[in-house]
Design a protein around this nucleic acid. Structure first.
Lengths: 220, 220
DNA sequence: ACCTGAACACCGTTCAAGT
DNA sequence: ACCTGAACACCGTTCAAGT
């Protein structure tokens, strides 16, 4: 996969797809965007620990240090990947909720959408939640926490609606949301780890969980 | 933290604690054991991504390749760390169950014990569940899956007891256990990530979750 | 502004050699 | 058996230099 004879040929760099470079001498239309997308692609295909800056550079036909014009370091790249992940997740949760109206069906649809996002983008999800980003990375990218809070907020809002409809007990909606979040997060993580493969389709487990939770948090 | 001037001095290796070497010319009483413990220590103190083979070697006053006598590679070391983690987790679950008898109190005690283990050994827990180990690592260490199944089995057994006592609805106990597992795993992961720090003590969330689940899975 | 190549200080892993 | 030092093929990051 990698040339085994270092510094041998003269300049056989730039492995693939030079058509990626739009025009202009040597800059992309939007290197930053391209970097982000390439990172997500290799992360989802091969896992975070396989992502190398030199690799994404090569994929884009760009030097391995070009990235530093757009991100402080590797960690900043990953933080941005996570931020966009939270944004996408929030949009998909809202869409699921909208498409199914409120009530129990809407609640289960959101749960399914959450787990579907995680299972559909396992490595992306892991960058968001897998402890890959440290405190410094969070501090350097305030938008990350914001988007994370936004995704969580979608859950809280849905719960509040259910409470107003008299479908859910009037506990603190934040505590309720944290509980629900734990469940879908737990299912997602176990599914991503392949630990649920012996136990039938994940959708079935999500449905079962949503039913049991529904009973557990129903208004009395 | 690391000497910045490479290959300068003659042999200022062996940074700390030569008293660690028992006797004999140059082997430990049990290098394998020492390696495992040193790995867990630095993992819990600094995180998995900070664990280097050269580092644990130096900590033990041993060459950086000595490890290869006891483990195939870094991944095999981590797999063994995970295996021991599952073993400890299972023992702590059983102990919590035993100490509180069956019933709801025993169930909540197990839940608390699970999350306590995770929060008490965050990086260790992440090696077990964080997707650090790939399929090859699992294939190379069959005991890992066994211990994982053992820990899960403790949960299933507890659920079966609750069913027999008429306290839990008679769904498939494995499906019930997977659901419960998702909840405690989700709480653990979010707690480890520091995402619950704004929402009060984790114990409170676990108690709340156990209550709501208890209602949700109660025998009708 | 944006990009490059060379250099630096790390890694994990292999291997011939020592006892 | 168990351990070592040197070497190899990688990393992320910095920096002077190019356009």
């Amino acid at each position: 996969m990698v040339r085994s004879n270092p510094r041998a040929g003269s300049k056989p760099r730039r492995p693939l797809d030079p058509h990626r470079k739009p025009r202009g001498r040597y800059h992309h239309g939007d290197l930053r965007r391209a970097l982000l997308e390439a990172a997500v692609r290799t992360i989802d295909a091969e896992g975070v620990h396989r992502l190398t800056l030199r690799g994404v550079g090569a994929t884009l036909g760009v030097s391995r240090t070009a990235l530093y014009r757009h991100f402080a370091d590797k960690s900043a790249l990953l933080a941005e990947v996570a931020r966009e992940g939270f944004r996408t997740l929030r949009l998909q949760l809202l869409e699921a909720s909208r498409a199914h109206g409120g009530g129990r069906p809407g609640f289960e649809a959101m749960s399914q959408a959450y787990v579907r996002f995680a299972v559909g983008h396992p490595a992306h999800y892991r960058v968001m939640f897998g402890g890959i980003l440290d405190a410094d990375a969070h501090a350097a990218n305030p938008g990350l926490a914001e988007e994370g809070a936004g995704a969580f907020g979608a859950l809280v809002d849905a719960l509040v609606s259910l409470q107003q409809a008299g479908l859910v007990r009037r506990d603190d909606p934040v505590q309720l949301a944290v509980f629900i979040w734990s469940v879908v997060h737990g299912v997602s993580m176990l599914a991503i780890d392949g630990r649920l493969s012996r136990h039938g389709p994940v959708e079935d487990l999500v449905r079962f969980a949503a039913d049991r939770i529904g009973t557990g948090i129903a208004a009395s």
